[in-house]
């Protein structure tokens, strides 16, 4: 079964780039869902089974940290893998997001090798299809 991935970013450009980077990294058979902010993502998670969330930090309505906290407060999503991506990524931010429950934090723009390395560390496999 292919992985079901939820990409959360207010920028359509970023969502499109992230999906293609997944595909370049060997996850071309995954099923992709998209949301424009944390609220939309939480709504989508009520109806869709998701195996991995890739979320931006800096978003209107509900930012990535608020989304992450809301997600981890729901017992159903305590173990759902979440990769946070951020343009404001330094060690201090990474520490903050990891403490809030992220499984990994990547700086923008994400590169395919960087993503692949993170996915291997989370899933122990190269191809997510």
């Amino acid at each position: 079964m292919s992985h079901r991935i939820l990409i959360v970013d207010d920028s359509a450009t970023a969502r499109m780039m992230i999906q293609r980077i997944f595909e370049i990294a060997g996850w071309q058979d995954a099923t992709f869902h998209q949301a424009g902010n944390g609220k939309e993502a939480l709504d989508l998670l009520k109806t869709e089974e998701i195996d991995l969330v890739m979320s931006d930090y800096n978003m209107p309505e509900m930012d990535g940290a608020q989304f992450l906290r809301a997600l981890r407060e729901d017992a159903k999503f305590v173990n759902l893998p979440v990769i946070m991506i951020t343009s404001i990524g330094n060690e201090a931010r990474e520490k903050q997001l990891m403490e809030a429950g992220a499984n990994a934090v990547l700086p923008k723009p994400v590169s395919p090798p960087q993503l692949n390395e993170t996915l291997v560390s989370l899933f122990g496999e190269v191809n997510g299809g």
Binding site: S11, N58, S87, I88, N90, E91, Q96
Partner: peptide, 27 residues
């Protein structure tokens, strides 16, 4: 959307250059 995303990424990188790894910053 593309120009906004470039500025967002650029400013994030600039903040890392200017403020280093230990400072929390928000855009």
């Amino acid at each position: 959307d593309a120009v906004n995303e470039i500025l967002n990424t650029l400013t994030g990188r600039l903040c890392v250059e200017m403020f280093g790894e230990d400072t929390i910053y928000n855009l």
